[in-house]
Design a protein around this nucleic acid. Sequence first.
RNA 1: UGGGCCGUCGCCAAGCGGUUAAGGCAUCGGGUUUUGAUCCCGACAUACGUAGGUUCGAAUCCUACCGGCCCAGCCA
Length: 550
Amino acid sequence: MDKPTNNNFITNIIDNDNNTNKFGGRVNTRFPPEPNGYLHIGHAKSICLNFEIAKNYKGTCNLRFDDTNPEKENAEFIKSIKDDIAWLGYKWDSIHYASDYFDQLYSFAQKLIKENYAYVDASTPEKIKEERGTLTEPGIKSKDRNRPAEESLELFDKMKKGFFEDGEYVLRLKIDMSSPNLNLRDPIIYRIKKLTHHRTGDDWCIYPMYDFTHCISDAIENITHSLCTLEFEDHRNLYEWIIEKINHKNRPQQIEFARLSIEHNLMSKRKLSELVERNFVKGWDDPRMPTISGMKRRGYTPNSIKDFCSRIGITKKNSFIEMGVLENTIREELNISANRIMGVLDPIEINITNYPENTTENIVAPYNPNTENSKKRNISISKKVYIDRDDFMEHPDKKYFRLSLGKEVRLRHAFNIKCEKVIKDKNGNIVSLDCTYDPKSRDMKKGNKVKGMIHWVDANNCIDAQINIYDRLFKNSNPSSLDDFNDKSLKIKKNAKIENNLDVKDINARYQFERVGYFFKDKNSTNENIIYNKIVSLKDSWKKINKKGD
RNA sequence: UGGGCCGUCGCCAAGCGGUUAAGGCAUCGGGUUUUGAUCCCGACAUACGUAGGUUCGAAUCCUACCGGCCCAGCCA
């Protein structure tokens, strides 16, 4: 397995820092999610980056919840985030909450006020917005900008003590209202929110903003390399300004990299939670979701996700990864590890007319033909079997080499059959097929040479199951809204027939249904209603050939 | 329009002044295979957004232009 993080521009920077002894050889990172949603594959990219760098450089990686906005955050999200990181196989060196730093943050704010770097502003939100200026026009200084430090200090204290309502006052940094970087136009660093916080309860009614909190939290934790996504590039100046003005001994370095985008997916927590809330999908862990929990439920493994993260690389270039890259990582792993059995998703009944009545024979086949000395399985066969609807065509084109009327095909691991008769209902739908088999073809050298081979299941000895088949979540390769949702993203096969070697008690087993794909037991599966999810198809060059013909 | 970034094969991505411009995915050939899977072999950028310039020598340095992304939350 490849390392989840190869060398990239960030490791180049770290190498350089180590050479110049910038941080005394230390490398400390952190993964800082806001607990306002479930983690997705884009977070996995950041998790792998931060944890692998810590591992490779013998440093540390903390988990820190950026919980400065009680409006959107809760304990359920905290739990799911911890679970997902642990499931991926990473252990944080220590766990922190930005809310643990509220006292320290408050004193740093006081310090800045005293030194005339911050002031309490009574302007309304509208006024502040108006005075911020635009991309091309400078802002206007607030009327409160020159409020004496003593007065600001007193007001800040009153804000903290709950004298005022939400929005009445804010604490602002005094930087530069005409800066071309809007983040430097006296950014707000504290606002009043009379809300209960999931950890600090009602201790606070003022909460620090991200820009103020993040850099100081990094400094407190002695983070050396603070890795974040590209949209924070414009915040770096502010990050550094704050660290400098509070004169902290630690000077973490913020480095930005491109966030992950995958074709036919959306990677914003806001949009993903909308999918959940508006019931496009059945929860955050719906197997179609690009969430860690969704992928886990679908059957992806931690290694396949890490492998994916290593393949896509780390750069500053906004890019879209093709779905195939993701699918291929899990295929590669499962090709080696998954046991093979047969499963018929869309059954047609076959009567083998010349096969003896009330007889069952046993066939021995390997669980994985690519593995030397693979364990063997026993498969039964009898007069009645099921094959997949796709594997029969009444009037095939010449490139089709599965079963058709009058033609012979091999049942995998068993013998050759020839289709003699197609039985249809009144509407012309195929109900079943009468076939004959060639007993001597049990020894493949003795039967006719046939090109096609199809999978099947003994109708007298099989497991009934429901199979969920998933397709891309969005029709559009670069979806812009939920309007692009693919309403055919879930197909349910209610009448699937699975080879009896399926171990329904094994909740960790991933199977290859031969010639079809890889499958994993769904969490809603019960003894009465067995449900498996398709993780991914096998590559299918027939599909391609077939398409070309059109 | 101000500022900050980014532009190497269909999709990712190495490359850091002298290389035949790595590698993966995809694609296309061929071989093995009774999974149209896997596996194996081969092909796949005289070319690095464009145009100039510096240099004996440039994807790598400079200039200009073109294209894309981000910023005007009391979100993170």
